[in-house]
Amino acid sequence: MEFVSFDWWQFFIRWCHILCGVMWIGHLWYFNFTQTPTMPKIPAELRPGVSKYILPEALFWFRWGAMGTIVFGLILAWMNGYLGSAIKLGIGDGSLHNTTIGFGMWLGTIMWFNVWFIIWPGQKKNLGIVQATPDEVKKATRTAGLASRVNTMLSIPMLYCMAGVHVY
């Protein structure tokens, strides 16, 4: 039955990878294109509406979107048979496809690391989930903001590799 063939499962995992990826990068771009530039323009008394209600919810979908993307992405690369080759950037394999997807995977992995080990720990201090002094909060928020901008920058070549791999 075609519905349960290996090809169908490959498609299903790719679909899950894309769904999570849109959830992740959609929120990343929301933070960088919309929320961060708009916050200074919002009257001070209205800002808690964003920082206390929208931000925690957005960060939840943002970080778990990142987790789902990398998990389904690794499963997909394994199912497609190029996980090992892509991890070593296709070096020695003479495959433009595997080198391209390898660069995309490594860029995505750096971004995932930034989300879970720099941005989220910093935001936990900013949101008061983790106790910190005002100086620590300021420093953590700045570091998280810069890591978020690094991810926005990396998302451009990462998506080139992810989408462009089908050309090679």
């Binding site: 495959s95 901008r149 690094v150 990396l154 451009i156 080139y160």
Partner: peptide
């Protein structure tokens, strides 16, 4: 000196430049 990542426009420009670098690296490696 101001960090270029503080500007959204410069962040996007750096992302495009990095894309060109990545494409050149891909073709150099493969």
């Amino acid at each position: 000196m101001k960090n270029p990542l503080d500007s959204l426009g410069q962040t996007i420009t750096l992302g495009v430049v990095l894309t060109v670098v990545v494409v050149l690296l891909i073709h150099a490696i493969a």
